[in-house]
Amino acid sequence: MQDSGSPPALPVVPTLTASSPKSIPTPFPLLPSMVSADFCTAAVLISSGAVLGRVNPIQLLLMTLLEVPLFACNEFILLSLLGISDSGGSLTVHAFGAYFGLMVSRALRQPRVDERGEQQDAGCQPDAFAVLGTLYLWIFWPSFASATTAQDGAEPWAVLNIYFSMAASTLATFVLSPILYEEGTLQAAQLQDAALVGAAVMGMAGEMLLTPFGALVAGFLASHLSLLGSRFLSPILSSRLKIQDTCGVHNVHGLPGVLGTLVGTLLAGLATADAYGGRMENVFPLVAQGSRTASSQAWWQLCALPLTLILASLGGSLTGTLLRIRALRSTPKSPEMENKVLREVPEDGLNPEASDEELGGSTLA
């Protein structure tokens, strides 16, 4: 019998531990599909940056409708058929979106119009928007890129690796940018690019066992690759390959995406069960099941790079050719007028180039 002076026994309440998060049904069954849709949106956004200001809204909408199925096809081949580990999208999002947009830009090139509009396109991004975008990137991008790794305690690895990489790429931009450019002053847009570069290079390797030092090195190298590409490679793309990259997506997304794929390939080849422990099932499930060795997984990771580049290049070329149809093209008065219509919003609904007489005589209906 229970002693009358002792307190009553409390019922035993089962507790949930980190080792068994799948024992209860998830309240968001559509969460993986929503994350995949967000990744697809990011790829389309990257592609749009290569042709921004050179296409009308109808062409942009058609490009989006054609890119989404191709993105889904590439993602299905890489992640489901080939068993590639690319949780943050270095390959499926950044590299695919960048080279798809670049090939669309190449197919849409109009020599006389583009040559007259190149000077007009330069420096059109206000610093205030660049600073605001940089803050949003630092706050939201690590959790966005690690959304698919949020299981069994795997998320902190990706978040920390991305933060370390973004910090290193930003620091490298402060050091190298004044050296490469004659004005010697760091632009706000370059800080935004540095944050994007650090996140792009960690897309594939973010959830892998990279260590903080490895993430810092990867972000440092990615920033140097982006700045050197912007200084020396972009003029070659424009003059030799006839590719006009309006927002510099090749240096901010394309090259870091390729570098991130190479980093992920190296880490896949070095993966061991002792180092990853229970995490191996989440990062490299085929290796954990014994279907592949670490070296064969690294080989498949590397083979996914040319496959993605081929799909993006062919799809972008065909899409750009379709967008050249005369019925889809607008006929603005000048390339400057087209840029203003698609990029700038007049204050208070007034034309910024209107004369004083026109402004004084204008009335609101």
Rank of each mutant, 00 (worst) to 15 (best):
S80K: 11
N161F: 00
M1T: 15
L221Y: 08
A98R: 11
S36Y: 14
G198W: 00
N161Q: 13
I325V: 12
L191Q: 00
V217L: 06
S317W: 11
Y181R: 07
C247F: 02
D356M: 08
T17F: 11
P21C: 14
G53A: 08
S355F: 04
V55L: 11
L241V: 06
R231T: 12
F76I: 01
A42D: 13
T185H: 12
E67Y: 05
L45P: 01
V197S: 05
S313R: 07
D121T: 09
G269V: 02
G117S: 14
V341G: 01
L16C: 14
E281R: 04
Q59P: 06
F76H: 09
P178H: 04
P156N: 03
A200S: 14
W300H: 02
I24N: 13
A50V: 10
W138N: 00
P8V: 15
S317C: 08
L137I: 09
L30A: 14
A18G: 14
D152P: 01
Y136F: 07
G264M: 02
Y99C: 13
S223D: 03
S169P: 06
P11R: 15
P178Q: 06
L322E: 05
S234H: 03
M208S: 05
A158P: 03
A365F: 11
N56I: 14
P335D: 01
I84A: 06
P256Y: 10
D152V: 04
I162S: 00
E155C: 08
S317G: 07
V287M: 03
S313N: 07
R116K: 13
Q192E: 12
G277Y: 02
A273G: 01
R112E: 15
I46F: 09
L30Y: 12
P69A: 12
H250V: 13
G214F: 08
T185S: 11
D3K: 04
K333G: 09
Q151I: 10
A312V: 09
A188H: 02
S169R: 09
G97E: 12
E207G: 07
T293V: 03
A72T: 10
D152Q: 09
L160P: 00
P332Q: 03
L225I: 14
V93G: 05
V197H: 02
P27W: 15
V35R: 09
C247A: 06
S334R: 06
A218L: 00
